[in-house]
Each structure stands twice: as C-alpha cells, then as structure tokens.
C-alpha cells in the first residue's frame, strides 16, 4: 500500500545553509509521527515544504502517491493537508468564528459577485460552512469566545483556535508545529489527550513537531529525529530515545 505521505531525499538550502539534506521517511495513514530535533534542525523547514511555502532543491514529496511539488500552496488543503504554525499565524483582527470559517474556505464555492449579491445558493453554502465551524468550536470548547476578536485572547486559547482552524480544513494529514510551545504543564497534558482524541475520532494522521519530549513519547507511534538537516534516527519512541546519535545531538546543543 502506498503510504499517505512519502518524503523522498528532500534537500533545502538557504544560501550556504543546508536546512535539509536528503531527508526521507514514510508516514502511514492513521499513524502519529513525531518529528524531533534541536533548534535549527530543519523541522519547520520540512513543514514549509509540505505546505509548499518552500520548494526543495532536490527530492520529492508524495501525498497519496502523487507529487505535491507541482501544486500551488493554496491547493494543499484540497488534497488534504492542514497545518498549524510554530509562532501562531492567526487572523488577528477577525473573530474566532471567522478564523475557523476561513479554514473551511475550500469546501465552498463563491465569488465576489455572488457574495456581494448574497445569492440564495451562497446562503446555503454559508450555512454548511457555519455547520463545520460551529461543530469545531463545540469540539474544542471555544463557545465562550466564538465572537471575540482573536487578538484579545490569551495565548493558550489562541493555540486552540489555530487547531480548530486547521481541523476545519478537514485534513487527512495534520501538521502540528510545536503545539505545546508556551503552554504550562497542565495545558500540555490536556493537549496530549486532545491530540489523541483528534486522531481517533476524526481519522486524521498527525505529524507532530515538538520539543516537549514527554508529549512526543506519550502520543507518538513513531519518531523521526533530525539534526543539522539530516535524519539521524527513525523508530519507536523508546528506540529513538535510546539512540546515541539523538542523545549526542541534544547534549551537543545543551552544551
């Protein structure tokens, strides 16, 4: 069976910096894969390749067997890739509800003309979009703030809004870039449960970048470790944790 995602020998360079070098791994549907590595290892760069913000200089990325490299960034949601961002990328002046609705942008069709005239078929679509948005607001317990502007919310809530927006895309593959970053211990525990729930209840395959080792080890089926743009380990959480290269990479950056 073809894997949901195949990353094959992907390389990315920024001037002299080699951000990714021949990185390869497969991700099976339904799996929860952790992507770890010290700061600057290339994790976000890989995510940006998967959402077509960066184009690799070599290698290929296959989603359900087809290369994504010939597609524009905004097409990624159509094929089923949704994401969150490391440093939150919300629509700050829009309400929580509207942020989530934008996540469902691609499930509806409308244009300037039909929207300006508010034609009946547009109204029906709006209704379907609202259905998606409210269901997620319910799922992530955002009712109390649904009409508030995102900029007014505390950081933890903003992260949840971003998750809701990514889920509104109805992704087959969900890319989470450091969802625990900036959260306290209690919140991180809750997040772990939430991510598992999302995988089990919503049929989503998750690729998780995280520095929070406890979280990675407790929720992931498999872990890939990067260091200086190269893959240095790939296996079960326990295997990767014991891997001497991984230990060295983390000790190396700590020193």
């Amino acid at each position: 069976m073809t894997p949901l995602l195949r990353v094959a020998n992907v390389g990315v360079r920024f001037g002299g910096i080699v951000a990714l070098e021949r990185v390869s791994f497969d991700l099976e549907a339904g799996q929860m894969l952790g992507l770890i590595g010290p700061n600057g290892a290339g994790k976000t760069t890989l995510f940006n390749c998967l959402s077509r913000l960066y184009t690799p200089v070599e290698g290929d990325i296959l989603f359900e067997g087809a290369s994504i490299l010939d597609k524009a960034p905004h097409r990624m949601v159509e094929i089923g890739i949704g994401r969150t961002f490391q440093n939150l990328a919300l629509f700050a002046r829009m309400s929580v509800l509207d942020n989530v609705r934008v996540g469902g942008h691609h499930v509806a069709r409308s244009d300037f003309f039909s929207d300006a005239l508010h034609l009946p078929w547009v109204r029906r679509q709006d209704h379907a979009l609202d259905e998606i948005a409210w269901e997620l607001i319910d799922y992530l317990d955002l009712h109390a703030v649904a009409h508030r502007s995102v900029a007014d919310l505390p950081f933890g809530l903003q992260k949840r809004v971003e998750l809701a927006r990514a889920l509104a895309v109805k992704p087959k593959l969900l890319l989470l870039d450091e969802p625990a970053g900036g959260l306290n211990h209690v919140e991180v525990d809750g997040l772990g449960r939430l991510i598992r729930r999302i995988r089990d209840e919503r049929n989503v395959t998750v690729l998780l970048v995280e520095h929070h080792m406890n979280l990675v080890m407790s929720v992931c089926d498999r872990v890939v470790a990067l260091d200086f743009g190269r893959k240095i380990a790939d296996g079960t959480p326990a295997e990767v944790q014991r891997n001497p290269d991984v230990i060295a990479a983390y000790l190396g950056t700590a020193a």
């Binding site: 905004h74 994401r83 691609h106």
Partner: peptide, 15 residues
C-alpha cells in the same frame, strides 16, 4: 480579511 491579517496563513488555509 484573512489576507490582510496574515497572507501566508490565508494561503495555507486554501485562499
């Protein structure tokens, strides 16, 4: 409005 607030995120959401 999404483009106004964050064009990269808007693109990633399919706009």
């Amino acid at each position: 409005k999404a483009i106004r607030d964050n064009a990269i995120a808007a693109g990633a959401m399919g706009v």
